[in-house]
Computed example of a mutant assay.
Amino acid sequence: MARIAIDMDGVMADTTQQMIDWYAKRYGVQVDKDALYGKPETTGFPHEKDIIRSFLFEPGFFRTKPVIKDSQEVIRALQDKHEVFIVSAAMEFPASLPEKVEWLAEYYPFITWQNIVFCGSKTIVQADYMIDDHVKNLQPFKGQGLMFTAPHNVHVTDFKRVDTWQDVAGLLL
């Protein structure tokens, strides 16, 4: 049985799509997700990145993110074979904590509170695998880092890549 640490934002919850949706509602401009590929997170929109980053501090942003396809089914199956923890560096956005708890309760009710870890730095995480979309979290990780594909990380080649939750299932189930 392996211990698997899974990031929320960008891995379970579609942060990029949420930014696109919020931007469209706010400014009436639909940004194509493909136009964001290879660009740092919060960039690639017609307005400067500080405007997009400000969404992260607005009530409801974390609570209403779309679920990434197949994540619910695969994570439930992973729990049957492995020890699974949801690990989020949520302390940067303290107001996100209750929203993330509510979001997990709605979309992943099978994950108990004992298996949810909110932290500031993921350097404390000890697991066999970590599935994350950010280099900064995978670089110091001592286990096997799995880079979950997101527009901001498509050029990263330092880690084994998983493009979808079906890729995760093929690797860990």
Rank of each mutant, 00 (worst) to 15 (best):
residue 147 M to H: 09
residue 145 G to P: 14
residue 73 E to N: 00
residue 39 K to P: 01
residue 156 V to N: 13
residue 110 F to G: 02
residue 150 A to I: 00
residue 86 I to W: 05
residue 38 G to N: 14
residue 172 L to N: 12
residue 52 I to D: 10
residue 9 D to I: 08
residue 4 I to G: 01
residue 16 T to W: 04
residue 116 I to W: 00
residue 9 D to N: 10
residue 118 F to N: 06
residue 93 F to S: 01
residue 58 E to T: 14
residue 51 I to G: 02
residue 8 M to I: 07
residue 160 K to G: 08
residue 125 V to Y: 01
residue 140 P to R: 07
residue 12 M to Y: 01
residue 78 L to I: 12
residue 43 T to E: 14
residue 107 Y to E: 07
residue 71 S to F: 02
residue 8 M to R: 02
residue 35 A to S: 15
residue 121 S to N: 09
residue 122 K to S: 04
residue 23 Y to Q: 10
residue 94 P to R: 03
residue 74 V to S: 02
residue 99 E to S: 03
residue 110 F to E: 02
residue 98 P to I: 04
residue 53 R to I: 01
residue 168 V to D: 10
residue 76 R to S: 07
residue 85 F to E: 08
residue 45 F to P: 01
residue 110 F to S: 02
residue 137 N to V: 14
residue 79 Q to R: 11
residue 27 Y to F: 15
residue 59 P to T: 06
residue 111 I to Y: 04
residue 52 I to G: 04
residue 164 T to R: 13
residue 58 E to S: 08
residue 75 I to T: 11
residue 50 D to G: 13
residue 46 P to S: 13
residue 151 P to Y: 15
residue 24 A to V: 00
residue 146 L to D: 04
residue 25 K to N: 13
residue 169 A to Y: 12
residue 60 G to Q: 14
residue 152 H to C: 02
residue 160 K to A: 10
residue 91 M to D: 13
residue 91 M to G: 01
residue 139 Q to E: 14
residue 29 V to R: 00
residue 28 G to E: 12
residue 170 G to Y: 13
residue 90 A to P: 00
residue 164 T to M: 13
residue 149 T to L: 15
residue 115 N to F: 11
residue 105 A to E: 06
residue 100 K to I: 06
residue 150 A to V: 00
residue 73 E to H: 09
residue 167 D to P: 01
residue 22 W to Q: 05
residue 99 E to H: 02
residue 133 D to R: 03
residue 80 D to C: 10
residue 44 G to V: 05
residue 36 L to N: 08
residue 61 F to W: 04
residue 38 G to H: 13
residue 29 V to G: 00
residue 6 I to S: 06
residue 16 T to V: 05
residue 3 R to T: 03
residue 162 V to A: 11
residue 56 L to H: 06
residue 52 I to Y: 09
residue 167 D to W: 08
residue 89 A to D: 03
residue 135 V to D: 13
residue 162 V to H: 10
residue 125 V to N: 06
residue 170 G to M: 12
residue 115 N to M: 04
residue 67 V to C: 03
residue 114 Q to W: 11
residue 173 L to D: 06
residue 6 I to F: 08
residue 3 R to H: 11
residue 105 A to G: 05
residue 122 K to M: 06
residue 113 W to C: 05
residue 78 L to V: 10
residue 94 P to V: 05
residue 166 Q to D: 12
residue 143 G to L: 03
residue 40 P to Y: 13
residue 93 F to D: 00
residue 44 G to C: 07
residue 110 F to T: 02
residue 150 A to N: 10
residue 145 G to W: 15
residue 74 V to G: 03
residue 113 W to K: 11
residue 105 A to K: 04
residue 100 K to C: 09
residue 90 A to S: 15
residue 65 K to L: 07
residue 32 D to M: 00
residue 136 K to P: 00
residue 90 A to D: 07
residue 120 G to A: 12
residue 107 Y to C: 02
residue 143 G to Y: 07
residue 131 I to E: 09
residue 40 P to A: 15
residue 57 F to S: 05
residue 20 I to N: 01
residue 156 V to A: 11
residue 141 F to Y: 03
residue 108 Y to H: 09
residue 31 V to Q: 14
residue 115 N to E: 07
residue 116 I to H: 01
residue 84 V to Y: 11
